[in-house]
Design a protein around this nucleic acid. Sequence first.
DNA 1: GGACGGTGAAACTTCAGGTTGCCTC
DNA 2: GAAGTTTCACCGTCC
Length: 518
Amino acid sequence: MKDKINIINLDGNEEPFLALVKDTIKKGKQALVFVNTKRRAEKTAETIAKGIKLNNEELDKISDKVLNVLTRPTKQCKRLSSVVKKGVAFHHSGLVSKQREIVEEEFKRGNIKIICCTPTLAYGLNLPAFRVIIRDLKRYGYRGYAWIPVLEAQQMFGRAGRPKYDKEGEAICVASSDNEKEQILKKYIRGVPEDIYSKLAVEPVFRTYLLSLISANIVRTRDGLINFFSKTFWAYQFKDMSRIKNMIDDMLSKLSRWGFIYYNGEDDFFKSADILNDKDNNEITPTRIGRRIAELYLDPLTAHNILEGLKSNSEKTPFSIVNLCTNTLELRPYLRVSVREFDEMEDKLVEFEDEILYKIPKAYDDDYEEFLGSFKTSLMFYDWMNEMDEEALLEKYNVKPGELRAKLQILDWLIYSCHELAVLSGDKEDLSTINKTRLMLKYGVKEELLDLLRLKGIGRVKARKLFNNKIKTIKDLKKCDEETLGLIVGKKLAGKIKEQVTFKKPTLQRELKNEKDE
DNA sequence: GGACGGTGAAACTTCAGGTTGCCTC
DNA sequence: GAAGTTTCACCGTCC
């Protein structure tokens, strides 16, 4: 297909993107509007919803569905629900996954006409529209406010034109001045995409792959590893094989020092690899822990730090486990600690100091700010475990429901990994605290509610209700008559609960079941 | 005189996303 | 860079 480039000059008072959106709907087509922040995605969706006349029963139903995805709708749920009524939606990582699914599905079905989104929708998903409007080609990043990469813009352009429905598609960049128009033409239309670089050179990626190659029995000697990496795109691009060899040696040495690999013929598992470098073809074997780390897809450094933390003499508490697992690369980026919060964080730090299982950096250290960020993130998890109201928690930490869920999911995986590491390192003492912590996080409850949560149909809210009515255990539930129970949790659920406690023994299996978003 | 509320300017803050990861009846 | 949020000075009103 041949690309056609047109420049449209819009005049009038209306915002250009609004005029474009209205035109799309008039044509009976759909559009994606790309913007540079989550907030802007929501605001733009609201502006569009106000500016168009679209409403039908089907949309009312979808709006309702979107509103009631969580037990209690958050501000964001209400906002999304109200724009969906008009056939408009916003889409970004802050949405709960169920809501994202609904928005995508209903766009495919043609019910939702316009989606205002961040780049989430440019990747992976097959969500083509007749028209793609790129409202923002600049975004705040590590280099300040700057143009987005050409590759990314092209990825967005590529969403336009639906193979089955349209012969062609339109990708429209919005410029705010003549000068900007020229820049956009030069960079994105006539320009060349950026080079692609191998990610293998990034240390966490490199060490993870190195361990998994050994662990999966793909390569078992130093020579073999060098040979393997010499054939990668990284080596092709990087060219300097001697530096790559050094990196491999350094990493092997670390992995063996951490006890994740050993060299055959050596009885000391922890002997440093650099002593053994001359034995190029000496077989490298993963230790049991090393193999498990690779299976868990954990970064070996994370695993090492968790193991060191577990070795600490301090007593393990739910907070200390959460904090240990939060202070990892996997949970980055951490929440930001603003200047205003600095003092508050330091006060909290004094309060929780004894529960931190690793060395706290000094205030003048380079990594102190990063540490405070991870500390703040663990405080958010701690509030969640202490049953803080979800809306209040989102507000306090300035996060969106989807982001909280995503972070909780990663933490769950890390705490499971922590459990596995504790088992393999023979640390039986801490297992029950680790398991307990994982459950408290899964349901967002204090320890005292865990017994009640073994039953189906009871979540954090109902369990708290029962507990506050002095029904604290399964035993209490057995004693309580169905009528009284019905007054607390509703008639229907009371019956179900009674059935569970009378006939079946509640299983703990439910506890670790995947219950998405709730 | 002092407490209080409203107003607007100035200062400050924030800003995308993420493969696939483990367990499971 | 832009939009939203917080802070603060200033002013008028009321008791």
